[in-house]
Design a protein around this nucleic acid. Structure first.
Length: 466
RNA sequence: UCCCCGGUAGCUCAAUCGGCAGAGCGGGUGGCUGUUAACCACUAGGUUGGCGGUUCGAGUCCGUCCCGGGGAGCCA
């Protein structure tokens, strides 16, 4: 094929393209006919939010017969000349010389219209929804965020490591996991329950990972600073706008670092990726600010310009007790913070991202480091307005005996995690890390209320389509 | 899993007290001297989510199931 140019490149330097001939390829968004013998086609190639206006002269035989075939959704190539546009709404347009129709779309059947569709409807056509403004912008932002996250960690000297997707342990010691097996549930095993696994692929129970943290700790205690960035699976029956059964998580882990270093890293990461987005995805962000969440740009600028609020769990409880609002759930030291409490802190009281640290040890998993008070652990939850918890992390318990005691308290067998305990017996060191949910970050930077819109093919209870 | 709300044309929605099922957009046809969610006219398009019940009569009331949304729990 001849070399085509991405529409985003043309808009980047409109004046340089004036009078030049280009080839563009993309999908027709709309066509407007004027009986003066001119048709206008809005062409989008996905490279940016904006469409390129293509002008077809129907008095020319080369473009006349083609004009009426260019229906919404059709895939086309257009060769033509960039010229100043006399109309309002765009400064340049493409005067078409010749047109290749790759794939026509039947207008009677093509489901996407020029108006807004509900997100619920778009989810039922996940094979076509990235051709809408909103889902296209989500895909570009998700891409750029992923790139910026890798860039940040590489600049900071972290190594990208790949932790296993198939695991034999479930890290949190709680939560439902997806079973991995080659056995056919419609053909029950011939053997007893113990021997049944002998016929299975791994000859033992295996699951999809719920977190790469424990394995990341292994590499942090060898390479110093590492991170994972991959898919994660939770089989919980969660039906909310903030949960997926399959989601992507970023998990840095660093040795010779404490909770303050952890907080600082999280702060720098969010600062970096949001700044990058404000610079590189301005059009898409403004689109979301205009059509989805009016306060979006303000809340993003807050992340860039101001440090997080850092409060202890104990301070949070005191703030909530003094709050002049009534909560459905009572606030008491030792009880978990409810959604309504978190929202009050980050959206009403402080109106910015807030890190809550030092939670009661009974509320948190076994691997978090016990503080000197013996009652709390060096944990941190970072909450942001509109989304809630976006990061959960902690300093890890590096003292072998304290770790084993924690495991006993939580009913976890140290034998099952022998290698994890052994890391504390050979060259143990203070270390810490956190997990950042990519989809929740995309929700925060786009303002989209439902997590099913920020991943191309959402998996939720009862839904694994496409 | 629990609580609340909803399901009417391809899409987004309306339909008063139980009384003839509608509009906009999209599609088709025709018109319009460069349009901008183009505009104007005409036109096709319905098992009102499924099943059962109450009633002279049900989109509307009752039961039940299915599906969707919002909230909660769990968490990222």
């Amino acid at each position: 094929m001849d070399r085509a140019i991405a529409i985003v490149e043309i808009f980047k330097d409109e004046s340089a393209f004036q009078g030049t001939e280009v080839i563009v390829r993309g999908w027709v968004r709309t066509r407007r006919d004027s009986k003066a013998g001119v048709s206008f086609v809005e062409l989008n190639d996905g490279s940016c939010l904006k469409n390129l206006q293509v002008v077809l002269d129907r008095n020319r035989p080369e473009t006349a017969t083609m004009a009426e075939r260019l229906t919404t959704g059709s895939a086309v190539q257009i060769r033509g000349t960039i010229t100043p546009s006399p109309g309002k709404g765009q400064s340049i347009e493409l005067l078409a010389q010749d047109i290749v129709l790759f794939g026509w779309a039947d207008p009677a059947r093509y489901p996407l219209q020029k108006k807004r569709h509900s997100f619920e409807f778009l989810r039922t056509i996940a094979h076509l929804r990235p051709r809408t403004n909103t889902l296209g912008a989500v895909a570009r932002i998700r891409n750029r965020l992923s790139y910026a996250i890798h860039t940040f960690f590489q600049k900071e000297g972290f190594f990208y490591i790949h932790t296993p997707i198939i695991t034999t342990s479930d890290c949190e010691g709680a939560g439902d996991v997806f079973r991995v097996t080659t056995l056919d549930p419609t053909k029950p095993s011939l053997g007893s329950s113990e021997s049944a696994y002998q016929e299975d692929f791994f000859q033992k129970p295996t699951f999809l990972t719920v977190s790469g943290q424990l394995q990341a700790e292994i590499y942090a205690l060898a390479l110093g600073k590492v991170y994972t960035f991959g898919p994660t699976f939770r089989a919980e029956n969660s039906n909310t706008s903030r949960h997926l059964a399959e989601f992507w998580m970023i998990e840095p882990e660093m040795a010779f670092a404490d909770l303050n270093d952890d907080l600082a890293l999280a702060q720098r990461l969010l600062h970096y990726v949001v700044s990058d987005l404000l610079e590189t995805a301005a059009d898409d962000l403004q689109f979301f600010a205009r059509f989805v969440e009016p306060s979006l740009l303000d809340s993003l600028k807050t992340v860039v310009q101001e440090p997080f609020e850092v409060i202890t769990y104990t301070e949070a409880v005191e703030i909530l007790k003094r709050a002049d609002v009534s909560f459905a759930f009572p606030v008491e030291w030792g009880a978990d913070l409810q959604s309504e409490h978190e929202r009050y802190l980050t959206e009403k009281k402080l109106q910015r991202p807030v890190a809550i640290i030092d939670f009661p040890r009974d509320l948190k998993p076994f691997y978090m480091r016990v503080n000197d008070d013996g009652k709390t652990v060096a944990a941190m939850d970072i909450l942001v307005p509109r989304v809630g918890e976006i990061i959960g992390g902690s300093q890890r318990e590096e003292r072998r005996d304290v770790l084993v005691e924690q495991m006993h308290r939580k009913g976890i067998s140290p034998e099952a995690y022998a290698w994890y305990v052994e890391l504390r017996e050979f060259g143990s060191a203070p270390h810490c890390g956190f997990g950042l949910g990519l989809e929740r970050l995309v929700q925060f930077v786009t303002g989209l209320g439902n997590i099913r819109e920020v991943i191309p093919f959402p998996r939720t209870p009862g839904h694994a389509d496409f």
